[in-house]
Design a protein around this nucleic acid. Structure first.
Lengths: 346, 346
DNA sequence: CCGGCGTCGGAGAGCGCTCCCGCGGGGACA
DNA sequence: TGTCCCCGCGGGAGCGCTCTCCGACGCCGG
């Protein structure tokens, strides 16, 4: 505890070589005589040496750390701040993201730093964190459309990669799924099952993702002879899905298929349908989006459009890494293809 | 981007003072003339100075970072490793933990680094991370009983605080809830509602927490004239709760109350009960444990024993901080009181 | 047998910061 | 008015590492 940790110097003395040579061995640099390399290795093992991260960072100007930022809107109360973190993590989406990021980072002995940026103060903390070199870059997950963080990051040219195309256009790298294509998959599946009066519950339409899922759905429906599709806007929550479905049912009692823009809303849709005496999928087929744990938990289990989250998150980490290394100077986005997962609901 | 960040030196020159004085201002050390302090503040603002974390860490020997480690068992396959992370985060428990930790850390401009230690290699990475001073200490959440990580940490006297009392005793600080008291609360509530043939579905009995919940429950029942209580062991999952309840029902069809050692199992219990034509709570009252989101999602919503997770997690962070500062040299554990949350199931 | 070239190890200069120490000046007390 | 003290500032020495030179040695060719 109190006895100080061995340094490069100590190892060098132990091995009878210079600091520089030990450094070369530690960093796996060529041009070291195998015999010496072995001697150094042993000295390292004997002393229990571990390179000091701070000292290394100081000269390499690299923290070997990246921030995973969950960004969004919230008020300034302390309780709200805590609730924000809890809510963000409660989303099953999040576990898959972390899983993908960690999958990429871990082989590189890196670990993500978890940050939340739901207030202006918190955003400034994130910026400060990056400016002072505590992290080399940020992976940003925005939970609402007008998130100012991406623009702030861009303004200081701090390396970052966004999840999803930002609503406010910015010259930044992002990773997204082809939402239009997802909407199309849902439409075609509903059509293929024989639905003739399909409706959709959208996400908040200020979000590009929600818009695209809707327009992909509408386009495909129109192309198959259904130019008019009843729509109701929701807020990506269970309750908003339920109330949207209630509205839809009131105006269009004959609906035989519903595309909900995420699984949580699809669950709400199913509940309202059940309470109205409709069977899923016999009377009304329901398709969700995300393939989250909600899709499996739902009764009946949801047919849903899957985003390859882990892969997308890992790609974000890779793009960020390349940006940090300077291999990537232009914004370079990657769009993934969604996939339909068939379960019982449609 | 390429233009280098301003240093203390730059600010000092700008303000016409020495590096040391700027450092004093930055670190809020007294003994600085107000006029000079103001001048330095302005120079800082003008230059956009942000102190370099690595340089500071190098001399203070402090990373100002703590690791949040989710530790457990798993095999070495890559898919399993990712699954471990995803599974850990999916647990609603986790969101509350992070929320509590962040609540403590954020006012100190600190952020947790997320690590997983489900394999020996991963554990070594965690140790290396701490040894090289990348983090000052670890908050450890073990997902299974024989987790070797705490002992490894203790052996190197690396600062750490555990969630829950370890099954393998170790001289380490931990934070826990009074599980016996929780079991007692459940028993007394069931008794007070008039249950005369209560049973319990326990957690894995190699976990101290599961043992204590059980013995607290048994003791209270015995004290009220019910020395024999049917028990069935579960594994803290939905399915294990369901199958435990099936076994219980086969042997003791007259059960009128069940204490399940966590909410997930309580959900399984409720489902089996429903399928057996028993009403909850009219025919059988059910009490869960944790007050997780499952408790609210369950039909009917669960009466459950609540652990103050956020507060516990914040306390862990505080204890770790004190340990790092050297204010706390002896293992000092804190036990929280659980609380009964009444909902519809009992 | 000698010169040139290539290879491998060592010396040393920082990276940006903190903190110890010492000095100068002004106020208070005798 | 003189002396002492204390407050506030600057100088400078590292913290542990990387990396650029540079020198030394060995090998090969002439």
């Amino acid at each position: 505890m109190t006895r100080k940790a061995p340094t490069l110097e100590d190892v060098a003395r132990e091995a009878g070589v210079s600091r520089a040579t030990v450094s070369r061995v530690v960093n796996g640099i060529r041009n070291v005589d195998p015999a010496i390399r072995e001697a150094v290795r042993e000295a390292i093992a004997r002393t229990g040496y571990a390179p000091n991260r701070a000292a290394r960072s100081l000269v390499t100007r690299r923290a070997e750390t990246i921030a995973l930022v969950v960004s969004g809107a919230g008020d300034d109360s302390e309780s709200e701040q805590n609730a924000f973190a809890a809510r963000a993590l409660a989303d099953p989406f999040f576990g898959r993201v972390v899983s993908g990021v960690v999958g990429f980072l871990r082989p590189r002995s890196m670990y993500p730093v978890l940050m939340f940026a739901e207030t202006e103060a918190a955003r400034q903390q994130v910026l400060a964190y990056l400016r002072q070199g505590s992290a080399d870059g940020a992976l940003v997950f925005s939970t609402h459309a007008e998130d100012p963080l991406p623009a702030l990051l861009a303004a200081e040219s701090l390396p970052c990669v966004l999840f999803a195309r930002p609503a406010l256009p910015a010259p930044l790298t992002y990773v997204d799924v082809d939402h239009r294509q997802g909407g199309r998959l849902a439409a075609e599946h509903l059509l293929a099952r024989g639905c003739r009066r399909a409706a959709t519950v959208t996400g908040p339409l200020d979000l590009p993702a929600a818009q695209d899922r809707l327009s992909g759905f509408q386009d495909a429906m129109a192309r198959h002879g259904h130019p008019y599709v009843p729509i109701a806007e929701g807020g990506f929550t269970f309750d908003s899905g339920a109330s949207a479905m209630t509205r839809l049912l009131a105006e269009h009692p004959g609906i035989d298929g519903v595309f909900a823009a995420n699984d949580l809303m699809a669950q709400g849709v199913c509940q309202v349908l059940r309470e109205s005496g409709k069977r899923v999928p016999e009377d009304v087929a329901v398709v969700g989006f995300d393939d989250s744990s909600a899709a499996v938990a739902c009764r009946p289990p949801l047919t849903t459009v899957r985003q390859p989250m882990e892969e997308m998150a890992a790609t974000m980490a890779r793009l960020l890494q390349e940006q940090i290394e300077g291999e990537l100077t232009e914004p370079t986005s990657v769009i993934f293809e969604p996939e339909l997962v068939r379960r019982a609901s449609a």
